[in-house]
Design a protein around this nucleic acid. Structure first.
Lengths: 194, 194, 194, 194
DNA sequence: TATGAATGAGGATTCATTCAT
DNA sequence: AATGAATGAATCCTCATTCAT
């Protein structure tokens, strides 16, 4: 089972993501990452110049994954705001189901200690993406008025809360009914009542 | 102005809370806590046997503060589930406004690394308290059916998201209108539609 | 035998000087310095922020010691250039005898890797001090003409070579006759022949 | 343009010499040597079993070069001790001019950490060669009496000091006059005065 | 034969904790 | 009781050396 360079780099990314998600960036030691990735400590530094760089790579990997999922989920035009919300919900669900660690890691609030400028830009992009959808819904009269950023925060917060409430953070452990109930609850949070 | 024991102990708690909220439990050094509390490093150990103990004390201090606020907010019986929700919302708002650091700290997901059994019990109590209120509302037909824990998670998550969206985490920076809008949005999340 | 702060700082300086002289700055490990000074590794960092800072402190300590010795040796005016040379020679001899490690360390050529600006200034001062004496001797007609810096380099180089030739670098191991012979040889190197 | 084995081995030697001279043996990394020699790191180990072995090879290469230069310079019998000294001086000058790095490297004092027995023998040979010349001069009454080793040390030290005083260590940067002046100064150091 | 990615022991530095004052 | 200097285990990172290609 020969390991290519890309292989090692990505295994390091995955290992770091898992450990950071579980025990915090600060609480994870480089040797632990190496061990989890089944690689020598020194090898980490061949791919990432420092722990901080690794932290940023992990952040961008996770955030980028979410962005990709959302982009894909909303690729085909939805026939109604409710449908578009369903697409988004599905994107989040798939992302959280496919990469629970990535979702958990992004939920952490302590990124400020190591994020660099580029990472912050990416984070802002996602926020803009989400705010844009909300604003379209508002113009269509389907979503309640008010600061789009606030509505985004409420909705994503709710989704995050839902995930946090289950251990380990596996959406797949939620029954389809529970998930559907949660979806309509969050839709009601956003929806403009008649 | 000699300082009483209780004085030092509580200043340490406050300082630790602030720093933990800002830079993570793992990312905060004991000397930093001592410095912030204007106390010698050695003194910390007269009040808290270890960093872990301090971390748990801080957690219980914060969680206990929230519980107290919620208990007080719901002290007088509410005339309707919507009113009771308003009480709860007010409790959260007051708590987050009065101790932003405490709220921020509780939002961190990484407590698992240092929480002891007693702290976990306290955390469970709050959850039970919240679930109980939801269940009462469900029995009264005012809150949508479904797993109460899930609804709690969604609502608290939404509130947390709202707070996270503003920097620094100061509810007091939100306009009364925004806050009111958010409150009804979250109520709609919980409310059983006709 | 309680150890004062100044005590530790200076013992660290001495230990580092000895080890740097013996095995190079690069070849000396911080734990070795700590061990030699009978101090914990961490303590080094209470007095010197980094190995580089320690290296510079050692350099300034050694160079400053030489400057002090030379200043003292030439404190009282000499009645002739030859007498002044004898004073200088005595200064070097006393310095090399009293702090063999300091002399040996200064003879190393590899300081460039860690010296900071302040250290370089000090080094330049000594050079100026020496050049000044040579120039006075030249004006008095006692020292051969030519670039003073070159003459300084030749004379100090000769003295350094003398020291290097004995192991361990102890001037005190040289017989008074040998030392006197060397002194007149170096004087002849400088002296203007009739 | 495939490179022969000897080619690689000698380029490694040159590169190592340059880097060792500039940044110390301890301060030079094997990858840096490989890079400078435009060779893969692994290749070093095909020619030199270890860094220590490379260090010794470099030392012997440099010291051997000096010995060769001196041997050649003194090949034809000199008509007087002063002429013989001129030959030696010329040998040193040519060596230092032709291989500044080699000369600089030999001036380092810290070889003790890695020199093996064979290298020490070679070093002793050079010393003997020089002492022998001095002793012949003494017997001829041209050089001052005293320990030959001490005189060698003084003279070579002076020459070394001269070189050190210029940056970068290039004899070729010294004017012919300065060089001639220095030569007679050092001769006066050795010369028996009437 | 030449390479350079992979390794892990070793080096500089940090920080929770102790203890003499 | 309060302090903060001292400590050394633990952390991040480097680099001599190996080995599969």
């Amino acid at each position: 089972m020969p390991r290519s360079s890309a292989d090692i780099a990505s295994r390091l990314l995955d290992s770091a993501l898992h450990l950071f998600a579980e025990r915090t960036y600060e609480g994870t030691q480089m040797p632990a990452v190496a061990h989890h990735a089944q690689v020598g400590v020194g090898s980490i530094y061949r791919y990432y110049p420092s722990k901080e760089a690794l932290g940023n790579a992990v952040f961008r990997y996770a955030k980028g994954g979410l962005l990709a999922e959302l982009t894909e989920a909303t690729a085909r035009p939805a026939s109604s705001p409710r449908k578009e919300f369903a697409q988004i919900w599905r994107g989040f669900t798939r992302f959280a189901g496919g990469s629970p660690a990535a979702f958990a890691f992004l939920e952490h609030q302590q990124h400020d200690t190591f994020l660099d400028a580029e990472s912050r830009v990416l984070a802002a992009e996602i926020d803009a993406f989400a705010a844009d959808i909300i604003e379209r819904g508002q113009r269509a009269g389907a979503i309640r008025p008010g600061d789009a950023a606030v509505l985004v925060a409420l909705a994503i917060g709710a989704f995050g809360g839902l995930l946090k409430s289950i251990r380990p953070l596996l959406v797949t452990d939620l029954s389809p009914e529970t998930l559907a109930d949660a979806e309509s609850a969050v839709w009601d949070l956003l929806h403009r009542k008649a």
